[in-house]
């Protein structure tokens, strides 16, 4: 039997070419999908890691706030009351010789010291847990804090609030974070800037609460990287990160420090809950 081969070489070439083309095309598409899948997995992992870190940060800040509140209340209720009692006791003390000058002076000095302790305890208690914030809202708390500083003569603060209703509507977590950030900024101004004036301006821009903070101090004379690594700034950053607020430090132009904080109102837990 004779073996014959009638294959058309050209057809075989065409089939081979198209076959290889298809195989290579499939391989390329497969590798694209594979690489994109890897990338997506990595991004999801990073997202989960970030969310976890944020949860940890939130828990830390919350426990810190609770602890501050507890210590503040203890100081106010226990230490404050006891010291007030001590002052009353001294006042009610009936000495054998009421006209003794030494005794009068001692009584007066003791009462002055007690008054100072009461004032200090109240201030510490207020700083640890600002009751005004809880009972009267963020604008009142900021106003009160500014008034205290203005009265101390350390700094003259102008507070311009054009978002009263929005600030009142903030959830306590957000309000506390913003309050703490402003407190930290004022603290930095007093401690490091040598400024005598500061302004806090709050307004609404496209459903965002925008807080502008400026002082007339020496500004950031160190590099931004070193500045951002500072304890105070890290504290500000972590508090803002926790509530998903953004901030921009104004570029240094020889004098003064300025920061703009933006908080999207739709992220406010109260608003978000009513929207959802």
């Amino acid at each position: 039997m004779q073996i014959t081969n009638n294959d058309n070489t050209a057809v075989l070439i065409i089939l081979a070419m198209l076959g290889v083309f298809l195989a290579v095309g499939t391989f390329i598409i497969y590798s694209i999908r594979n690489q994109n899948k890897l990338l997506r997995q990595r991004q999801e992992f990073q997202k989960a890691q970030l969310a976890h870190q944020k949860e940890l940060l939130k828990a830390t800040i919350e426990s810190q706030e609770n602890e501050r509140k507890r210590i503040g209340q203890d100081l106010h209720d226990d230490v404050g009351t006891t010291i007030s009692g001590l002052r009353l006791l001294i006042e009610m003390f009936k000495p054998a010789h009421p006209d003794d000058d030494n005794l009068k002076e001692f009584t007066q000095t003791s009462k002055s010291i007690i008054d100072k302790i009461v004032k200090d305890v109240r201030n510490i208690s207020h700083n640890l847990s600002p009751t005004t914030l809880r009972y009267y809202g963020l604008p009142a708390a900021i106003t009160e804090h500014c008034t205290i500083i203005n009265q101390s003569g350390k700094l003259s603060i102008t507070f311009d609030n054009q978002a009263e209703a929005e600030l009142q509507s903030l959830h306590i977590t957000v309000a506390t974070a913003l309050y703490r950030v402003l407190e930290e900024l004022l603290n930095n101004t007093i401690k490091h800037s040598g400024a005598n004036r500061a302004t806090i301006s709050i307004k609404m821009i496209a459903n965002n609460i925008v807080i502008d903070y400026n002082d007339n101090g020496k500004g950031i004379t160190i590099s931004h990287d070193i500045f951002k690594k500072g304890m105070g700034m890290q504290n500000i950053e972590s508090r803002l990160l926790n509530i998903d607020a953004a901030y921009t430090i104004q570029p240094y132009n020889g004098q003064g420090f300025g920061i703009e904080i933006t908080y999207p109102l739709h992220l406010n837990p109260v608003t978000a809950a009513s929207n959802g």
């Binding site: 070489t9 050209a10 070439i13 081979a16 070419m17 198209l18 290889v20 083309f21 195989a23 290579v24 095309g25 390329i28």
Partner: peptide
């Protein structure tokens, strides 16, 4: 990808070029 598609598909044709 362009190089791979062209040269992989072309190998067979390059082999049998003289038949064409």
């Amino acid at each position: 990808s362009g190089l791979l598609l062209y040269y992989a598909s072309g190998v067979v044709m390059f082999m049998f070029n003289n038949y064409l």
